[in-house]
Structures are given as C-alpha cells and as structure tokens.
C-alpha cells in the first residue's frame, strides 16, 4: 500500500511538472544542422548550374542503389563560350526516396560537394499517395538549394 501511494505521488509530481510533448504538426522542433533527411542536389549560384558533374560516384557507393545518374557535355563550358569550368554536367538524376536508407555515404563520396542531406522539416514530411511520387527527378532535387531553403552541412 505504501508503494502504491508512492506511485500515486510520482504521477502527481509529473502532473504538476506539466507536458513535455509538442503539438507536432502545428509546432515543429528546431532541427540540428546535421539532421539527415534525404539527399538533395546543390546549385552553384555563381554560374547558375548544378555542382554535380554526373560522375556516378554516389550511384556506385549507394548501398541500396536508389540513384540513377546520366551525364552530358556541359553546354556552358568555357570551350562552348560559357563561363563554367565543368566539362561534363549532370543531365538527369533520379533518387528513389522510397529506397534511400539515409546513410550519408553519397555525401561522403562526392568529390564536388554537389550532394547534401536535407536538414529541414521538408525532408521529413514527404508523404505521398503513390510510391512512384517518391522518385525525385533533377528539378525536384534542385529546387530547395536554388531557393536557398537549406543550409547544407557537410562533414569535413
């Protein structure tokens, strides 16, 4: 009986301490900068083109093979009277978010710092009605970096 009274006192103490949960969909917790949601491609604002050269490094390193990359000659390369130093550039890029296991390996192997993990809430709230909608193409992967929505964090 004394133990039961002690239990009652414990719950009463938490009753007084007040809630520790948040009203999630309306209130968001601030995410740490290292938060890993899903990979995104980054946009080089100086030249207005993606950092990605389509080198397939991430595609090869991906443990779940969720990426598909196609490469092309860069139309705005210096030799073509452009201002870019990238001879090759990404043509198409798909990431299947449904397969991705968010291991961060693609970010580590990238030689151009062209890919980063989404560290905003938009990366976590990606529910869709159809699985095929989870396959992201190049414009979708670029959108957030173009509009400055993410501050990417890359391990040194």
């Amino acid at each position: 009986m004394r133990g039961i009274v002690k239990s009652l006192a414990t719950t009463m103490s938490t009753f007084i301490r007040g809630p520790v949960t948040r009203g999630y969909p309306s209130k968001h917790r601030e995410l740490p900068e290292r938060d890993r949601a899903f990979p995104l491609l980054l946009w080089d604002k100086d030249i207005d083109e993606p950092f990605c050269t389509g080198c397939h490094a991430c595609e090869r390193a991906c443990p779940v093979e969720c990426m598909t990359v196609l490469m092309k000659d860069n139309p705005s390369h210096e030799s073509q009277d452009g201002n870019s130093k990238r001879r090759k550039i990404v043509d198409e890029f798909w990431i299947d978010y449904g397969r991705c296991m968010r291991c961060n390996i693609c970010v580590e192997v990238c030689n151009f710092e062209a890919i980063a993990m989404n560290n905003t809430w938009s990366g976590h709230e990606t529910s869709v009605y159809d699985r095929s909608d989870l396959v992201m193409d190049l414009p979708q992967l670029m959108a957030q970096s173009k509009s400055d929505e993410i501050q990417e964090w890359v391990a040194d």
Binding site: G3, I4, K6, S7, T10, S13
Partner: peptide, 10 residues
C-alpha cells in the same frame, strides 16, 4: 521516476 513508480509498488 521509474524507481518511484514501479520498484516498490505492491
């Protein structure tokens, strides 16, 4: 809290 809630509860 756990100790108080459970350990001695009859």
């Amino acid at each position: 809290d756990f100790d108080n809630l459970l350990t001695r509860n009859e």
